[in-house]
Design a protein around this nucleic acid. Structure first.
Lengths: 211, 211
DNA sequence: TAGATTGTTAATCGATTAACAATC
DNA sequence: TAGATTGTTAATCGATTAACAATC
């Protein structure tokens, strides 16, 4: 049951999580339909962009009414991986790694943290939610046994590349990098960076501008 | 000592932190010069894009040698706010908020966490690094006294908008949102979202594609 | 000097916006 | 029916890439 017609352009994919968030909110408020204008208004886009974006999806609207919210939630959840469960591990049991491993938003959106690993022997066995920190030496075993699809890299910058290499060698094809270094990966591996400091840097640039 | 000639396009600004990361690495390795080709290679861009990007900066290269790494570090650090210190507060003393408040990368890049606030009375006084959690009721006072420029929103989704409104009312003009909701702000306020779940969702879409 | 690399102009590509006929 | 809203085509806008003269 694949959902997209062709291939969704990257800028559109990056907006999809925001659409999903917004229509879920409307759903909670009891709304049934949403127009491209309302979506545009809510997400600071034009209604034209909204209609173009949604045209990439397996979805159609109805004149005079707009789009059925329930259907949008279904379609978007499916594309964004929330329909089936994804099996994830976290590498790095520091404050950030353990905060993320325990964060309810992952589970709520289809991502199950199956294990937390670390190189530091002092941390072995530490409880993180319902998990216990295990050694990096178990990486291959864990990835294979638990059928891990994604790895979250939450280690210091100087270890991040090595961790990524190990994950890739173990067969993980999708990496989320929280470390403040550029990680090189072969082109068949997907990697996404998520970084608080970078967000602050963008804001700092914004603050420094007159406008 | 403003640095940019005109106004740097958003896609370029978003690449700047990656340039900075990369040239800092080269600097640590003892390199002195870097060419647009080397930068392109390192960041998966074309050398043409690199030269266009750098032309927005207060910087010029030298034929046959490239760009002086030390100068690039200076210029990029300056634009990205790392030259002067920025005063930041964190709202939300949960696992994520406290992990970020204590994360060394912020301080290292020019961002000083001056306080951590929370609504939950049970958390008041809890130690977070060298800080103690204080009540949201002190928000205005803290923002004014400590001259806070940026707020990091690390509260549950259903509280995020209210927190943002309070920050804005207190005079904070730049917000970093970690909560999984769309926050509405007046156009003179800058807001940037940083979200692990969204990163995972993008990866999930990538995994679902043939390529 | 010859060769490499910048800085910039022009060409291409792709994303956003506008416009409007189709339709509910 | 009249009016609102979609879906899509065409126009615009802006970002990326190519190309090349200037220069070290």
């Amino acid at each position: 049951m694949s959902v997209s017609k062709k291939l969704i352009p990257v800028p559109v994919v990056k907006r999809l999580p925001r659409y999903l968030l917004f229509v879920r909110e409307l759903q909670d408020l009891g709304h049934e339909w949403v127009s491209s204008m309302a979506l545009a208004e809510g997400l600071a886009l034009t209604s034209s962009t909204v209609r173009q974006d949604l045209s990439h999806l397996n979805m159609s609207g109805v004149s005079k009414r707009g789009y059925l919210i329930e259907h949008m939630v279904t379609v978007l959840t499916d594309i964004l991986g929330g329909t089936r469960r994804h099996r994830v591990i976290v590498i790095g049991a520091g404050l950030l790694g353990s905060a993320i491993a325990q964060h309810g938003n992952l589970e709520r959106n289809g991502f199950d943290v199956q294990a937390v690993l670390d190189v530091n022997p002092d941390l072995m066995g530490t409880e993180i939610g319902e998990l216990r920190v295990i050694s990096m030496r178990n990486l291959n075993k864990v990835v294979e046994k638990k059928k891990i699809e994604m790895g979250i890299i939450a280690v210091p910058a100087d270890q991040a590349q090595a961790v990524a290499d190990a994950l890739i060698a173990a067969g993980v094809k999708a990496l989320l990098n929280l470390a403040l270094v550029h990680i090189k990966v072969p082109k068949e591996v997907n990697i996404t960076d998520v970084r608080v400091v970078v967000g602050l840097q963008e804001l700092a640039y914004g603050l420094s501008q007159p406008g």
